[in-house]
Design a protein around this nucleic acid. Structure first.
Lengths: 110, 110
DNA sequence: CGCATATTCAACCAAACAGTTGACCATTGT
DNA sequence: ACAATGGTCAACTGTTTGGTTGAATATGCG
């Protein structure tokens, strides 16, 4: 699986995109990442593995806690790929904000 | 399936990305899109349907030929999403976090 | 030590996916 | 009319995915 395959496949899941959005604000432990979602910890653990395999996050174990942090390099690579398909407007943060709102899991906003 | 789901899922397949790259050069008929690949025409037809459902291409039938052309709008949306992650440098992280604080209050989502 | 916490593993399941083949329209050319 | 061309549909297959549960492995704490 080439890297773009893994990156785009990882991004194709709304749970994983929500996780990335959460990690944008701060590094988090696996359990805390899982908290707002209505699925098992094991499921979130798998999602985090997918994100890590795609290079989108890095995980570091300290003690019994595994910390997850965003690693935007892979996203940057995918973004570069997409730039080839047209001149996109400079980053539109208003649009980004709308995406964030749409992406956050309900329980993460309450 | 929200649109970002469909766009990223469509981009996760190397055959589909190759098709997009081909369409970057010129509009093409389905048969011509299929020609360089070592898989059946039906398989390529399915890939094109996936791309069309994601909004990445438009298809127009003229006579018995169905023309496929790139439609970068969906790519632009995905690109905006990704640039939100990929663009900032560590130095800008604090500012971006403040942006999130200011633009995404918990109460502003409904 | 013994118990609670953090996380993963293993086995399983249902649904989706990527591909095949062969039949089936629809359109064009002779 | 008929054959060839362009493309999709339907049914089937094997693999992947996203989720579950329960057991297992570490680590930290009283």
């Amino acid at each position: 699986m080439n890297n773009l395959d893994a990156v785009f496949a990882a991004l194709a899941d709304p749970t994983r995109r929500a996780i990335l959005t959460m990690l944008l604000e701060d590094d988090m432990a696996v359990t805390d990442v899982a908290e707002p979602f209505e699925m098992s910890l094991a499921a979130i653990s798998k999602h985090l593995t997918v994100l890590a395999n795609a290079g989108l996050i890095a995980q570091e174990k300290r003690g019994r806690v595994k910390w997850c942090k965003l690693d935007p390099d892979a996203l940057r690579a995918a973004s570069v790929w997409m730039q080839g398909f047209g001149q996109f407007e400079p980053v539109n943060l208003d649009a980004f904000e709308r995406f964030l709102e749409a992406e956050l899991p309900d329980t993460a906003r309450d």
